[in-house]
Amino acid sequence: MYKFLVACSVLMFSTAAVGQELTADEIIRKAMDHYRGQTSHAQMSMVIHRPDWQREMGMKTWTEGDKRTLVRVTVPAKDAGNGTLSVDGNMWTYTPKINRVVKVPSSMMSQNWMGSDFSNKDISKDTDIIDQYDHELVGNYQQDGHYVYVIQSVPHEEAAVVWGKEVLHIRDDWVMLEQQFWDQDDQLVKTLRTLEIREMDGREVAAVIRMSREGVEEEWTEVRTAAIDFDVELAENLFTLSNLRNPRE
């Protein structure tokens, strides 16, 4: 009896792992959880590359759950202390130069974040995609011994979203390999690609991701994760405006 139960559970586990039984929604959910964890804290750098020009910024990020993100710039010194807080789809920016917190209006969420190829929305690492889109598994392939799901996500009729659709490539260990952003006219606008995967804090993590607009591949922005800890203890007031204004670190 016990053996039977074990056999069943092994069977169930293995089928789940192969993904036959997983729905597109579940795959997305898992991918989101994978890269955010319950909580996370990371050291990153952002490289904005243009043909005639390049700029690098160091920053720290914290996330909690689906809806809370804090980004704080550390390098270069000129920009250190600038921060962006995003809670429940709202976004605030703090600039030490003028010592003010400014709310980023929702009309600006699709604007570039600080001249990069990421939008404010991308930076907030919002998980809107989970509940504002309908997901459909449209394909799969093998890569490096992994199974990769291809999911097409189309926003709900009434969703306030700029994209016509997104196409996601998610590996069976829940690392997102590629995220394509298509406009309402079904033209590919930009693509976020994972260039390097490394194990950090016991997980396979997309260590280098690059966003580039379709047709201008010589212009891109990379986010390189130097270190990340998942499921860390976070201070209670981390995701508050007063913390944004007065960093304790």
């Binding site: 700029r55 000129k78 130069k97 003028i98 003010r100 001249g115």
Partner: peptide, 16 residues
């Protein structure tokens, strides 16, 4: 009024 933007060198630009 406060302004937020990015400078010519990509830095954070802000002013009152």
């Amino acid at each position: 009024l406060t302004f937020l933007g990015s400078g010519r060198d990509g830095s954070f630009a802000a002013g009152v």
